[in-house]
Amino acid sequence: MPEPHIVLENVHKSFGTKHVLKGVNVGVGKGRSLVVIGGSGSGKSVTLKCILGLLHPEKGSIRVGGKEIIGLEGPALDQMMGRFGMVFQGAALFDSLSVWRNVAFGLIQGRKMKPSEARVIAIDKLAEVGLGAELADISPAELSGGMRKRVGLARAIAPEPEIIFFDEPTTGLDPIMGDVINNLIVDSVKRLGATTITITHDMASARKIGDDIAMIYKGKIVWCGPADEIDRSNNPYVDQFIHGREEGPIEIEL
């Protein structure tokens, strides 16, 4: 059996004396969608940032397409980054650039495309996420939360990455807008055939986006399985989390 597209093996990450990831093991098959669920502060974002090379784990292995990425530096790391796209929790749009320049950023700066060509693609991608061309020249500061998420999504998919990460794509949106974003994610990922990892604590989103779901608790994966089996996991952590109960094995940190 070939190795999954993305593999994390025994990944450890600490900040000072705070041990955040304590041996994360998880894998995602090519073209599949993994959703990582878990409470706030459980290490979801840290896990993503380790894969993205923004944080450096002390121990373990992270392989993408069979290639170890821990310890990559310089051009090798940049090249690996070129295969990734990321949608940030707060969208992380560049305030100093117009909407279309945000969407075209990876094309112009990363792919060295001519701005006139990149603009055409950017407006295409905006349409894909349901935004009209009239928004192209305004500043991101003038957009609503849902629109910012859409622009962030358009920016991430514009360079057509083979792997996309989503950090809490629906947090802070109303349920209807959350569903709209979920559908956009499913559609655009399908169109690209990309492998994705989404982190969220929104179960509706997890069920909609995920082929597989993994649950992280105290820096370890406590359960992992197909999304449609999550209700039959027989895992006390998963059951407590998906039903949102106060009683159970999960210690609530204040």
């Binding site: 923004l54 980054m81 990321m86 940030f88 992380a92």
Partner: peptide, 11 residues
Amino acid sequence: EQIDALTTLST
């Protein structure tokens, strides 16, 4: 997270 976003856009 705009600085992280730059990195993920190959910049």
